[in-house]
Design a binder for these strands. Structure first.
Lengths: 190, 190
DNA sequence: CAAAATAGTTGAACTTGTTCAACTTCCTAA
DNA sequence: TTAGGAAGTTGAACAAGTTCAACTATTTTG
């Protein structure tokens, strides 16, 4: 049952009544996405927010020179969202693509806004999740400023082994902010 | 009146009744902090959250080699918090130091937790503020991965001129993730 | 005001990471 | 099942950024 993962995560984050949790989960619909398909393309306004049940996604930007930059990866239990586009309803700068056949639970923007109104506990849920994510991004930035490429690579593969095994080296290099040629050389050094 | 800035920021973020806003602001107490004094030192558990009324602070980590790494600066209308320490009540990895004589509005952790209970709108306030901050951190990380040091420097001084003018080049270099010697060379090139 | 500490500059040698190009290997779609 | 296209490897030349050391401002403090 694909909703169980979502329920688990909510229960681990906040205390919520059974009926409120049901109401929350009922706002989501399941969707399967084939490998290489896009959940969101740059320039579009993002109307959904997603919880990954199975599979894996990459979230990336494309700069002026046409280079892709992987911002993060999302496997089981991760959230997929472009907060910027979702908050402000501005065209997205992000692309979200499935790296393998995947299942996500999607909630429409309007439905989420309604939930914020009808269930204040949902504000708390996303307040806490956002704050936790913020801490993670701050730490990642510190690592990028203080560690070498090799140290960052070692940190990534040891911290997220279940995601790393689904990725190509090219994708990892882009996430780490280095070229894939250089990652190849790092790996050769041992 | 130092509370007016706080009220303005809240009003710009959410719709809130006059009495709720009063209750929120009443939980804060004003404190003046002299230049170079610390609001928080690494290893302590952070019991307060602060809103900067005047002056300027730097938030930084110290790594194993003893190098300081400026994470961000906070001038008027910015918030000072170690979310990680505040959320989990774990010893802080951050140091918060005044760069000039400053005034902050402080709220105690317990009082903030009480406010979350009694005023659900405060959950919304911090949910939105956290999500906006998250977007800013994501963008900063993308810039760090895709721009050269010089481009990052130009972006920083043009985006935050009112903060830059309060900083030394050494502090800016640390924020950008480069050495102060290299920043000096960047500036010389024009 | 004088002394001491801190901030900023410059150069030379060095390390880290990039670019480009050629090659190999491994998928994958017709 | 095989041709075509990604993904990965390697090397050489290069660019970006660091380190160390010596020096010059500029603040800070007694």
């Amino acid at each position: 049952m694909s909703y169980q993962l979502l329920k688990n995560q909510v229960n681990q984050t906040i205390e919520i009544s059974h009926s409120d949790l049901e109401n929350f989960c009922n706002a989501f619909t399941s969707k399967t996405i084939k490998k290489k398909e896009f959940l969101l393309s740059q320039g579009r306004i993002y109307k959904y927010e997603g919880f990954v049940v199975s599979g894996c996604f990459r979230v990336f930007t494309i700069d002026k020179k046409g280079n892709e930059n992987n911002l993060y990866f999302a496997a089981q239990n991760w959230w997929l969202m472009d907060i910027d586009s979702f908050l402000n309803q501005t065209p997205s700068n992000l692309n979200i693509q499935a790296l393998e056949d995947s299942e996500v639970l999607l909630i429409r923007r309007e439905d989420k806004l309604k939930l914020y109104e009808s269930l204040p506990i949902i504000e708390k849920l996303f307040r806490i999740m956002s704050q936790k994510a913020l801490v993670a991004w701050q730490r990642r930035l510190i690592r990028n400023n203080t560690l070498t490429a090799k140290e960052r690579y070692v940190h990534f593969v040891t911290t997220y082994p279940n995601i790393v095994c689904k990725l190509t080296d090219k994708q990892i290099a882009s996430y780490l902010g280095i070229t894939h040629e250089f990652l190849s050389k790092i790996k050769k050094q041992g």
